[in-house]
């Protein structure tokens, strides 16, 4: 433990981990929806910093770009459109908090325990040779070309689906009217 804490990398890690933990807790327990969404921003940003620690630069900036830039904005729009209570309210949780806590604890225990048992003493190199974009490109368009294409199809489907879902419902009479006109 003492060895670990002596490394500066680990200090950074620890700080970042605490931020993430705190923000994560805020996300799931905050009564204010906007606060929750913004806490997610904190989580994401910290995660990106951790990625940097792990020499995954490209992934880190993609995370910030996509998640923080687009997804979270989407979330904020969604919150506003569904007239979610933006102010304080009594509780955003339901009756099943107990069950949820138990389940979460169980999951944590499982995962943490498995991880500790399996990888308890594995050392990794943190900041070092970065994984360059070039390497990633080679990999994406080389070995993982097919998954890449499939993911783009997923995006396309999501796009179309989103449009279809968000369209205003028209009655068949109005449909006919529109096409005629």
């Amino acid at each position: 433990m003492a060895d670990w804490i002596s490394l500066p990398v680990n200090w950074v890690f620890l700080v970042l981990a605490l931020v993430i933990a705190f923000a994560g807790v805020k996300v799931v327990t905050s009564r204010n929806l906007i606060h929750a969404a913004l806490s997610l921003v904190g989580v994401l940003a910290s995660t990106a910093a951790l990625f940097l620690l792990l020499s995954a630069e490209f992934v880190a900036w993609v995370l910030v770009l996509v998640y923080v830039g687009a997804v979270l904005v989407l979330f904020l729009f969604g919150i506003m459109i569904t007239r979610a209570p933006m102010g304080r309210e009594v509780s955003l949780d339901n009756e099943r908090r107990g069950l949820a806590a138990i389940t979460a604890l169980a999951t944590f225990a499982l995962l943490a325990g498995t991880s500790w048992v399996a990888f308890g003493d594995v050392e990794i190199e943190g900041v070092g040779d970065p994984i360059t974009t070039g390497d990633l490109a080679d990999s994406l368009l080389g070995r993982y070309l097919i998954p890449f294409e499939i993911v783009s199809f997923v995006l396309l489907a999501a796009l179309i689906g989103g449009i279809a879902l968000a369209r205003k419902d028209r009655s068949p009479a109005e449909e006919a009217e529109r096409t005629d006109a």
């Binding site: 138990i102 389940t103 999951t107």
Partner: peptide, 9 residues
Amino acid sequence: AAFILGVVV
């Protein structure tokens, strides 16, 4: 909830 618990178990 049931699903996740079940998986864990």
